[in-house]
Design a binder for these strands. Sequence first.
DNA 1: ATGTGTTCCTGTCCGC
DNA 2: TGCGGACAGGAACACA
Length: 283
Amino acid sequence: MPELPEVETVRRGLEPVLVGRILAHVDQRRLDLRWPLPERFAERLTGRRVTGLGRRSKYLLIGLDDGETWIVHLGMSGRILISGATVGDFHRDTSAPGKHDHVIVTTDRGDVITYNDARRFGIMDLWPTAELDAHPLLAGLGPEPLGNAFNGAALTAAFKGKRSPVKAALLDQRVVAGLGNIYVCEALHRARIHPARIAASISAPRVERLAGEVVATLKDALAAGGSSLRDYRQADGELGYFQHSFRVYDREGEPCHTEGCPGTVRRIVQSGRSTFYCPKCQR
DNA sequence: ATGTGTTCCTGTCCGC
DNA sequence: TGCGGACAGGAACACA
């Protein structure tokens, strides 16, 4: 589920449930996700009051009243569920913990927050809030695409001297933070730029257009509550539906959605990951 | 210094 | 049905 729009959707869903609440009980059902969880993890969370919910790139930042921030990354398959309801695209109704429910938090109001992650590529850490920018995973991140620091000029500067394909450049979190495979494919299609183009070789006006389409793509996805893939369960109101708006992602062999374009969506592999694009209108 | 390929893990889907 | 292989929203890491 988790690129920027999905993580932001989760953040918005958690905010009213968590902010101001005390984490009354923490059930840590594994010692590790991608890496070991912090020392005394459950103990350090228990009894803390949540002061705020933030996001940087694809990282969820849960501020605590002891001056630490609970950092959560959903990896490929991480989901967060509230009390049997749905956040993002994850829905399950049982009361018994599921096989991949790794961390279960109960608030002082009785809401139950479950972190579920089948592949365990997710990450959790605790870090002093005052030094968040220095966290090894956050320090090198590029600008937030929906923030003031991201625009055509910033992207042009980041592309300068980049010999990699523009697809890889946009996936590089140091260039711009929060894009993943879906939204990079979608933004490149909207900007009509071929994913294999060398980043540094794209003209300034086209990079300008690309920056605009990155922002527009993310805003559209956000408005739809993100994208729900594969483990989509049922219509729930809280499920994202941007997957119905994909122009190229996962549409190999289907017609290009560009107005008047006779092209067919093609799939290629770039640095080990699928890229979907239209060979006719993306140059 | 940059660039690309491999790796972590489980689940699902497709062809035989 | 069962089995093997490809593939999946990420990104650190090892290596050219």
